[in-house]
């Protein structure tokens, strides 16, 4: 019997069925696009400058001229919210990207190597999580001094632990899968098995968490701004704006409310994307 006589192989039935992204992902991406436009070209959208004082129009309720009203310096709240997008997206990105990269990489390596490297990093992680997240970040910023850069450093020093946990656990599961063992039997090097095979199959939870974490990052930036440890006035930052408006809550609710809504919108955007990505990144089976 020769190979030519091998029975014909039927084509797999589901071969060419494409999977469309879920609507949540599409909505999330549309909202993100809106946020990006606001962040990159705020001039186009904003009717006024975010920092110009207008003492003629202090604490005005929403009107057709100032749809979100004005604050105690007469600044247009809509414009400030729009200009705030850039700084808040930046905060969302920088408070999560470094922890994500660092934590995921470390998680992959220690999850794969195990033994002492894993134990060592595990102790370190325990040390970090003993303290409440915010308390630790505040403590570090207090030592380094206020400002966005120091805030990023502080958050990165603490935030990697979650990513490390997620990726480490996933890699430890995946390395028992037969395709990983097959890689060893095929004589592949450990780094190839780890980075080419295990990591792509293990990184999904971390990416999904990254999206949730971005909304948390904005809130964190807001909290720190509120405490005066993050973005410094007069930078239009949503958290700082919420904090500034709180004294006027009873008389001028719009000052805090609209930046608060913007925060929520950004949070929802990231959650939708995270949810959609989780689905899209799942390997088909």
């Amino acid at each position: 019997m020769t190979v030519a006589q091998l029975p014909p192989v039927v084509a797999a039935p589901q071969a060419n069925r494409r999977r469309w992204p879920k609507p949540t992902l599409l909505i999330g991406l549309a909202l993100l696009l809106l946020l990006l436009v606001a962040a990159l070209v705020p001039k186009v959208l904003a009717p006024f400058s975010p920092t110009d004082f207008d003492y003629e129009a202090i604490l005005q309720a929403p009107t057709s001229k100032h749809p979100f009203g004005t604050d105690n310096f007469g600044r247009d709240v809509l414009s400030r919210v729009i200009y705030g997008t850039r700084i808040d997206l930046q905060i969302a990105l920088f408070t999560t990207l470094f922890p994500f990269l660092f934590g995921t990489l470390l998680g992959a390596v220690t999850g794969y190597l195990g033994r002492w490297s894993d134990a060592l990093v595990g102790r370190l992680a325990d040390l970090v999580v003993v303290f409440p997240f915010l308390v630790l970040v505040i403590a570090i910023v207090a030592v380094l001094g206020p400002g966005l850069t120091n805030m990023y450093i502080a958050v990165s020093a603490v935030g990697w632990v979650s990513y490390w946990r997620l990726t480490r656990g996933e890699v430890m599961t995946q390395k028992k899968a037969e395709y990983a063992q097959a890689g060893r039997v095929l004589g592949y090097s450990p780094s190839r098995i780890l980075f080419r095979h295990l990591l792509p199959n293990s990184v999904t939870p971390a990416i999904v968490y990254l999206m949730t974490d971005m909304s948390l990052g904005i809130l964190l930036g807001a909290s720190l701004g509120y405490l005066g440890l993050g973005a410094q006035p007069p930078t239009p930052e949503w958290g700082v704006m919420v904090a500034d408006g709180k004294n006027f809550m009873a008389t001028a609710w719009w000052i805090s409310t609209f930046p608060g809504l913007a925060l929520t919108l950004a949070g929802v955007t990231f959650s939708l994307i995270g949810d959609g990505l989780a689905d899209a990144l799942r390997p088909r089976a």
Binding site: M1, P7, V9, V10, P13
Partner: peptide, 15 residues
Amino acid sequence: RPLQPIPGGPPNLLS
């Protein structure tokens, strides 16, 4: 000696 397989695979009940 070679076995005598049934060629192909089970049918797809959807088609």
